[in-house]
Amino acid sequence: MEAESIGLHGVRETLLITLRAKAAESALPDSLLRDRFAADLLRRLDGKAKTPDVGHDMTIGIAMRAYMLDRWTRAFIDRHPDAAVLNLGCGLDTRILRLDPSSSIAWFDVDFPDVIALRRRLFPERAGCTMIASSITERSWIDEIPSDRPAIVVAEGVLPYLSGQDVLDLLRRLTTCLSGGEIVFDAYSHLGIELLRFNPSLRATGAELRWGIEDARALERDVAGLTLLEDIHNYDAGQIARMSPVARVAIHFFSAIPMLRRMGRLLRYRF
């Protein structure tokens, strides 16, 4: 297939960071993610999209994040063969291809209209999958989600770009309109957000990081019905070993200081 044209800017352009990272990590002989679909998409976009230089350590970090969110999603749909999966801010994420769920799973990919238009051109139609063209902060899109199915909401690399109020409004809307399930996402402390502002890949897009969280249990108090199940902030030792010596030393240092140890984490809630 010929390379596809693309014209995304700002926060939308960050989808190219995750795509390139997943493709690059999957090309490594010791790949964790093994996402051949991301590599194929990147090849089809070659010459039509300027993908930011991600760097080896960020590549490994993004792959670890995606792998853990995949595991949580797979475990949920294994327990609930009639589940709904909401992939918020989906970008060009290939999670549905990596997990290859049964058509009995109602899968929803949600993102800005221009991102969904690009996704429709690149992804084949699939039974059970619906693409919704909307900002996730809009209220109307959730009316398209069945309220009688157990649901898992996945937000990878999305919530930190929203305001704190938008995050709370979104979580409250999800927990109110859906019958129950889980919400899984990545989050950063305010210090982590400030440090990420200096990341060359993110700075190249012009995207603004906004929402940070210090105490994962604060969301239990702010959003009725949320219960924290997992708060993962420790790196897998096997994956740390794949990183550069500088990154390994930094992670070892950060892990010894509580404030630094929780700069980035993966969170899983039940509602």
Rank of each mutant, 00 (worst) to 15 (best):
E2F: 09
G7R: 11
V11A: 06
V11T: 05
E13L: 12
T14I: 07
L15A: 04
L15M: 14
T18I: 14
T18Q: 04
L19K: 04
R20P: 03
K22H: 13
A23Y: 01
A23E: 11
S31P: 04
R36Y: 10
F37Y: 14
L41D: 09
L41S: 02
R43S: 13
K48M: 14
D57L: 12
I62W: 10
R65W: 07
R74G: 05
F76A: 07
H80S: 02
A83N: 02
V85P: 00
N87D: 15
G89D: 04
G89N: 01
T94N: 01
S103Q: 05
P113V: 04
P113R: 00
D114W: 03
V115H: 02
A127L: 00
T130N: 03
M131T: 02
T137N: 05
T137W: 01
E144K: 13
S147D: 12
D148K: 00
R149N: 04
R149T: 05
A151R: 02
S163T: 15
G164W: 06
G164F: 03
D166E: 15
V167N: 05
L170I: 04
L171R: 00
T175P: 08
T176P: 08
G180A: 01
G180T: 13
F185E: 14
D186G: 11
A187Q: 15
Y188M: 10
S189G: 12
H190L: 08
L191H: 08
G192N: 08
I193L: 15
E194D: 15
L195D: 11
S201D: 04
A204Q: 14
T205F: 02
A207C: 09
A207S: 10
E208L: 09
I213M: 10
R217P: 07
A218M: 09
L219W: 03
D222N: 04
D236I: 07
G238S: 14
I251P: 05
H252Y: 13
F253G: 10
F254G: 14
I257D: 11
L260T: 12
R262P: 00
R265C: 09
